[in-house]
Design a protein around this nucleic acid. Sequence first.
DNA 1: AATGAATGAGCATTCATTCAT
DNA 2: GATGAATGAATGCTCATTCAT
Lengths: 221, 221, 221, 221
Amino acid sequence: MGVRDTRETPEALRADARRNREQIIEAARALFIRIGPDVPMEEIARAAGVGVGTLYRRFPDRGELIQAVNLDNFTRLAELARRTEAEEPDPAAALDSLLRSVLELRLSVTMTAASAPARQAMKESAAVAEHRDELIAVVGRLLRRAQEDGAIRPDIDAGDAVMAVALVSRLAPPAGDDLGDMIYRRLFALVMDGLRAVPGSGLPGRPVGYGDIEELRQRNQ
Amino acid sequence: MGVRDTRETPEALRADARRNREQIIEAARALFIRIGPDVPMEEIARAAGVGVGTLYRRFPDRGELIQAVNLDNFTRLAELARRTEAEEPDPAAALDSLLRSVLELRLSVTMTAASAPARQAMKESAAVAEHRDELIAVVGRLLRRAQEDGAIRPDIDAGDAVMAVALVSRLAPPAGDDLGDMIYRRLFALVMDGLRAVPGSGLPGRPVGYGDIEELRQRNQ
Amino acid sequence: MGVRDTRETPEALRADARRNREQIIEAARALFIRIGPDVPMEEIARAAGVGVGTLYRRFPDRGELIQAVNLDNFTRLAELARRTEAEEPDPAAALDSLLRSVLELRLSVTMTAASAPARQAMKESAAVAEHRDELIAVVGRLLRRAQEDGAIRPDIDAGDAVMAVALVSRLAPPAGDDLGDMIYRRLFALVMDGLRAVPGSGLPGRPVGYGDIEELRQRNQ
Amino acid sequence: MGVRDTRETPEALRADARRNREQIIEAARALFIRIGPDVPMEEIARAAGVGVGTLYRRFPDRGELIQAVNLDNFTRLAELARRTEAEEPDPAAALDSLLRSVLELRLSVTMTAASAPARQAMKESAAVAEHRDELIAVVGRLLRRAQEDGAIRPDIDAGDAVMAVALVSRLAPPAGDDLGDMIYRRLFALVMDGLRAVPGSGLPGRPVGYGDIEELRQRNQ
DNA sequence: AATGAATGAGCATTCATTCAT
DNA sequence: GATGAATGAATGCTCATTCAT
């Protein structure tokens, strides 16, 4: 049932090699957020405490690295989604908590594409897709339940919610920036308010499902 | 009353030179949106139908070009704001219309920062600041009047509104993308709903003025 | 008897065109000394108060301009040499005065070649050659007479003297630099002392005539 | 006691990398002399048999390369000065031999300034300064002793001598050019004769110390 | 005839990726 | 397996020269 489309099975690596791999992903995630997905490979290697050679041995090119970070992100998100759905009985509260956590994990690179070269580099991965689907499924279920409760406006679907949150996540400030953080949290709250039922106001078009988002991504390559 | 801090007064250029200048700005604006502020200068020149040399004669480096595009954007925005405020008596409707127009002009590069090198390149310009101030002043006035009418939630200030719109503007789809456009318009509407008065829900922190946004920008250099 | 190998006869130009021509040569001479022979053509044009177009109309490329400056320099030098020889009866004093004047005119670009591209650009001109020959002839005559007087060492020829002075001329300091000027004058005096008769010390090789210098220049292209 | 202000300790490099580094410095020295300090970096790389990337890895910009060549030059010069002073008891002979060797090493770029951009690029380095100081100290000592012997004129100081030699060194001909070489050696001998005591002739100004030369260099940036 | 705009080739530098140690 | 050196393609920018106004 495990999905496996990266060249190597991380579990099969020697202890030190696996540690290297993790450090690289950790460093890459941090730098993708702080500098952007175009950050020099050498800088990532340095931050991870390895040579570029090692980085390239693990991830043959930038695309594979981005994808690995993505996979790592979505693995956590899916796990988080599962747990939140299981533990929080109120769907609106669960949704709010889940989306807030998404932000806190600062997984921004992940969902909303980045610079053109980075988009080129980001290959589709079955493993990522699997976790993403799971996340989306949870969001969809919570959304529907919350809509049945009247806590979330009825004219939206999971795609709307995901886009809204993904958008806000782009503003994630560097750690320690209090003003940036306040603005960020206010914006999230404001968007969440937008997701709540607002009598008398309708959105244009039709509810956007996650399939729509994927189609959109295709189109931009 | 006119402000001018670019080296040359565009009006004083020869006819063909002015046409080139405008084509360059047009091409740059489009490419900054589509590709990002790091698009190769050569690509901008090609899109504008001129040689690189011409591009550089007009804009000594990328920073000057970005700034010129910014100035052009904000000049239009300020003009638009003035007109909207003068013509639409209902403040909430004016605000909605103004912000919607901002999106339609696809002026995204403008307000929300870009990649690190691009940020470095984006010099502050007195002319840009003047137009920006005027735009913000109008947004602030409309906001206050709409809040007095109870049409907009009382716990926000101009900075909140501007950030919200700037954020959405990043999603501006290429012309002709119907799905993208629908998602984009829905998101905008959703955010506008968030700006409306929502009884019983308060935002964290305090209202964010435009000064806060500027401080934020400073900090990111 | 006039030599004419530049495209246009300066005398035949309209008054304003001639003034332009002279201003360009003046500006070029100053900038060649201050910045070097690679100074941008546009900068020369600006200093001369004309557009590049005008500069290029007069001097089709950098080589022609360098050559024109050269011609101007050598014309003055030849005239100066004639006058000095006629007016100063003591050959050693005349030589000293002539060489000192050469320095004071700061005609350095002229004789000792410059950067590789500049050397490429400096075409041989019959007019320059004529004036140069005249200058050299005077130096040679003064030298011989001074040697007969025992005032100048016997083992040198005009080429030696010219090279020595040309060398020193490279140090010409910008106007107003007192320290630089002192060093410059000391060096000149020191070289002149080297040219004077020094009993008991002989130079290696054989006396170097001007023909040798020209052959050397050929070889370096 | 060794001084080292370049980022890397050359000794610590891998064998092949060190060889490359040396080839680059060798090629750069030769080309700086032959073409000038503005030779294309690519040409230097080609002459050294490496790619540009390698050149830039070792020397992050032209300035660092110039400085490295300088350091190499002065290291040799200082060593040579030490040896000459230790081995030759007659100060005048030692001075003549030392200065002659300086020329033979063709270290011209070093002391006499270059084109404006190159001057900008030439950063001051503590290591270079140290070796230069040592060289100057030796020259100064030899000079004083020779002056006491009456073999060198009394009205000069180390700065005069260094400038004189630096000047001549600019004429260094390419290897194998016999005529150029003869002229070069004659000029050197002539300058040396100028340095010798010449009764009845005084230099203008005051003796120039090395501090004066440094001040001069400052002024030219 | 003068002007200054347009062009594009040339050089410096960076960085993704490959490869020798 | 890890390292960091080498490579060269890509991109920013400058400037000599040509050409439209």
